[in-house]
Amino acid sequence: MTDDKPGKISRGEPVRQRVLDAAERLLRDGRATYSMRDLATEAGVSFVTPFNQFGGKAAIMHALSARRIDAMIARFEAAPAPRDLMARVRLAVELAVAVMLEQPEVNRAVMSWIGTAGPSPGQVLAHSTALWALATQVEEAPSSGDRSRDVAELSVQLALGFRGVLSFWTAGEIADEELALAAQAIAATLVAGFSDPQHGGNRRKQ
């Protein structure tokens, strides 16, 4: 792809945000199958700009997913977080579900693209894990290396579990009003397994 046409806005973060904002508007209008030309027109940029900035539609949808995760993280950081692990995870689930249900149809459209490969490997899992890493940061006595690894593993498992619930929600198998309950249930199961004194030992012996 070539650079943007003369007279158009220049490359950079403001341009990326302009393209993402346009994608959000198209999704809110029910145009999940929008073309890159539709997107460029909506954003008021040249046809090549979305390609130059993102490479393709999959990467744009991944970036929209990142916006959702950023919102979840920001809300968790702004909330009075409990000190108890299970309570912190419940709060993270509550806030994450609230973000997804604010624009359910838009977010279903975004989620439907998460499994689509972009021009480069996605970072959704790593980004989502950052949210759950915050939720599992509990003040306690200095822990062993094994305990720290278990906490890191729990964060990844929570990210995978929440993604799994969202996948069924995206497919219409979990209703909006059931999303919080399903997400809380899988999170509680994962935390219970982590909190079991036998958890670490059993896992390491496998």
Rank of each mutant, 00 (worst) to 15 (best):
M1C: 12
M1V: 12
T2R: 14
T2G: 15
D3V: 14
D4R: 10
D4G: 13
K5R: 13
K5T: 14
K5H: 05
G7E: 00
G7W: 00
G7C: 00
G7S: 01
K8T: 13
I9E: 03
R11I: 05
G12T: 01
E13Y: 12
E13K: 14
E13R: 15
P14W: 03
P14H: 04
R16Y: 00
L20K: 00
D21N: 15
A22T: 03
A22R: 00
A22G: 09
E24V: 15
R25C: 08
R31V: 07
A32L: 03
A32I: 05
T33L: 03
T33I: 01
S35G: 15
R37I: 09
A43S: 11
V45N: 11
S46T: 15
F47Y: 15
T49D: 04
P50S: 07
F51A: 10
N52D: 11
N52M: 08
Q53E: 15
F54C: 05
G56T: 03
G56V: 07
A59E: 15
I60Y: 00
M61I: 02
A63M: 04
A63K: 03
A63R: 08
A63W: 00
S65L: 05
A66F: 08
R67K: 10
R68W: 00
I69A: 04
I69R: 08
D70I: 02
R75C: 00
R75K: 13
R75Q: 12
E77H: 03
A79F: 09
A81Q: 15
D84G: 02
L85T: 05
M86I: 08
R90H: 14
L91P: 05
A92Y: 00
V93E: 01
E94I: 07
L95I: 05
A96M: 08
V97S: 06
A98K: 09
L101Q: 11
E102M: 03
Q103C: 05
P104I: 02
E105D: 15
E105W: 06
V110Q: 04
T116P: 03
A117G: 05
A117V: 07
A117D: 09
P119W: 08
P121L: 09
P121E: 09
G122L: 09
V124R: 06
L125W: 01
A126F: 04
H127D: 10
T129Y: 02
T129S: 14
A130N: 06
L131M: 13
A133M: 12
A135V: 09
T136F: 04
Q137H: 12
V138W: 06
E140W: 03
E140V: 12
A141Y: 06
A141E: 13
S143F: 05
S144W: 04
G145K: 08
R147T: 07
S148T: 10
R149I: 09
V151N: 03
A152K: 04
L154E: 01
L154H: 07
S155K: 01
Q157F: 02
L160F: 12
R163Q: 10
V165F: 01
L166H: 01
L166G: 00
S167R: 14
F168I: 02
T170S: 10
G172Y: 11
E173W: 14
E173S: 15
A175K: 13
E177G: 06
L179Y: 04
A180M: 10
A182Q: 13
A185H: 11
I186V: 15
A187E: 01
G193P: 06
F194V: 02
S195G: 02
P197L: 12
P197G: 11
H199I: 01
H199N: 14
G201Y: 13
R204Q: 07
K205E: 10
